[in-house]
């Protein structure tokens, strides 16, 4: 049966929920083991951050969509938190395998990492609800038509809500896609488009951490030799 955009979006939403049925909006036992292996236990900081960011998200969602939608915002956020913990666990498993390390104290106590990961998870949830934003003639916006308010909650709305530098969000995208193989193709494409928007413009705004990185690499000197020109 050919799918209308709405039907496709509804299926994606249902699929996202199915994917996350086993996930909880609290850390799993595996995650708690990683937390305990840290030199500095990050559990309390993570719990507090999720709670605070949840409050900010729900408030901004209600401001954007309407006060009567606060419950809806809370549901969206909880779905995002489920995806956040699910992907975090998957990332740590692959990092453990790659680095043969079990103590992720620095990473798990890094606020930018957590905020970026949660923002990326929420971006997937929001984009799923907006429907096939890529097909609606633009990046979650249909040009000139009377958008539903929800289309304005697509990227980069979440960066403003969390006051998150775009470049930090950019750093988590590829690992997110790698850690979440069940991510729907259109969501992967949406995150890829986020990367393009960030690299084309958002990462070059003043105060972007990208400039610090460029300065640092220049100070460290040439480092890796530039590749010789192809013969």
């Amino acid at each position: 049966v050919p799918q209308t955009p709405i039907r496709a979006a509804m299926n994606s939403i249902q699929q996202l929920r199915v994917d996350l049925t086993s996930a909880s909006d609290q850390p799993s036992s595996n995650l708690l083991v990683y937390y305990k292996n840290c030199t500095v236990d990050p559990s309390e900081e993570i719990r507090k951050r999720v709670e605070e960011l949840g409050q900010v998200f729900v408030e901004r969602f209600a401001q954007a969509v309407g006060q009567h939608c606060e419950g809806l915002g809370r549901k969206r956020f909880n779905l995002g938190a489920q995806l956040y913990y699910k992907v975090m666990e998957s990332m740590l498993k692959s990092e453990e395998k790659r680095l043969s390390v079990q103590n992720f104290s620095k990473l798990l106590n890094n606020a930018a990492f957590h905020t970026s990961l949660l923002a990326c998870a929420l971006e997937v949830v929001m984009a799923t609800y907006v429907g096939n934003s890529l097909k609606s003639g633009g990046f979650g916006r249909s040009s000139g038509s009377s958008d539903s308010v929800e289309t304005d909650l697509c990227f980069p709305w979440i960066l403003d809500v969390f006051q998150l530098p775009a470049f930090d969000f950019y750093k988590v995208i590829e690992s997110f896609i790698k850690a979440e193989p069940t991510l729907k193709h259109d969501m992967m494409k949406h995150l890829e488009q986020c990367e393009h928007v960030i690299m084309e413009s958002l990462a070059w705004k003043t105060d972007s951490p990208l400039f610090d990185l460029l300065k640092q690499s220049r100070e460290e000197g040439p480092g890796e030799q530039a590749e010789p020109p192809a013969t």
């Binding site: 680095l99 390390v101 620095k106 990473l107 990492f113 750093k171 590829e174 896609i177």
Partner: peptide, 21 residues
């Protein structure tokens, strides 16, 4: 997600990207 352009090298991951290696 095969047609995503993975660019990270094998020695790169979130630990390195967030300077936590």
């Amino acid at each position: 997600n095969q047609d995503y352009h993975f660019g990270l090298e094998d020695h790169e991951g979130v630990s390195e990207l967030f300077d936590c290696d």
